[in-house]
């Protein structure tokens, strides 16, 4: 579905992402992991056309630049790390914008189908009681669920998630990941997500890309990628021992 070839992102003379290539197929959930500053989020930003890059990105064997913005949005949806809203839009208004890609023209109107996807998204995320509330009054977790609902209403085939639960409580973390896991059950869909919590990555991911200083250290099945040798090298510490010692506290 999505193929990234020799992706390179530079800011000034700083290379953030260096020659990264990967691809993803239906039903897969690829976790992009690595230490802070490895360039994880930048990959998402480049693929979603939010940052300048060199290299090529293909969507269904067609270059991503050849899609119009609304055509692209019907295939790729993005959930940013955090969304900060300045104006008191209602929850419903934010979710409804997710349907923009299906009626991009100046005179287009909301269709029955739009309504159906919006209702579905509201139901999936359990936001029914908050619809007319201003997004300024929501907690961080609720706001992130609103943008997840917008994403579901957008109904793309590939989700790009940039640390979607970074600032959220454990409960919301679990909720968001469970929702995405459910979403992925429908055939023809795939997920790429940046996660810095290795345990979360392991719990939900099937494939992984381990990134270090902008370069790929390992790519493949998650159990293979997150082996002690790779992790110790990238994180400069005994990751397995650390994880086990943390787990011990809960026994």
């Amino acid at each position: 579905m999505l193929e990234v070839k020799n992706l390179k992102v530079r800011y000034g003379n700083l290379t953030i992402v260096d020659d990264v290539s990967f691809s993803i197929n239906e039903g897969q959930w690829l976790m992009i992991v690595g230490p802070n500053g490895a360039g994880k989020s930048t990959i998402i930003r480049a693929v979603s056309q939010g940052a300048p890059y060199t290299g090529e990105v293909f969507l269904y064997d067609k270059k991503i630049e050849e899609y119009k913005p609304y055509e692209r949005a019907r295939i790729i949806g993005v959930l940013a790390q955090s969304n900060y809203v300045n104006y008191p839009f209602t929850v419903r208004e934010v979710i409804r914008l997710g349907r923009y890609a299906y009626a991009p023209g100046i005179f287009s109107r909301q269709s029955e189908e739009d309504e159906r996807y919006i209702s579905e998204a509201i139901e999936m995320t359990g936001l029914g009681s908050l619809l007319n509330k201003s997004v300024l009054t929501l907690s961080g977790g609720e706001l992130q669920r609103v943008f997840l609902a917008q994403l579901f209403a957008q109904n793309p085939r590939i989700l790009l998630l940039d640390e979607p639960t970074n600032h959220l409580d454990l409960l919301y973390q679990k909720q968001v990941f469970a929702l995405i896991q459910d979403w992925l059950k429908t055939p023809g869909r795939a997920v790429v997500s940046v996660v810095h919590d290795l345990s979360l990555a392991r719990a939900y991911g099937r494939q992984a890309l381990l990134l270090d200083k902008g370069k790929i250290k390992a790519l493949g099945d998650i159990d293979e990628v997150l082996n002690p040798k790779n992790l110790d090298m990238v994180y400069s510490m005994d990751v397995y021992a650390w994880m086990r010692s943390k787990l011990e506290q809960w026994r």
Binding site: A80, N83, Q150
Partner: peptide, 8 residues
């Protein structure tokens, strides 16, 4: 967000 939902 505008970019992500398909606004040019």
């Amino acid at each position: 967000n505008a970019l992500h939902i398909g606004v040019n």
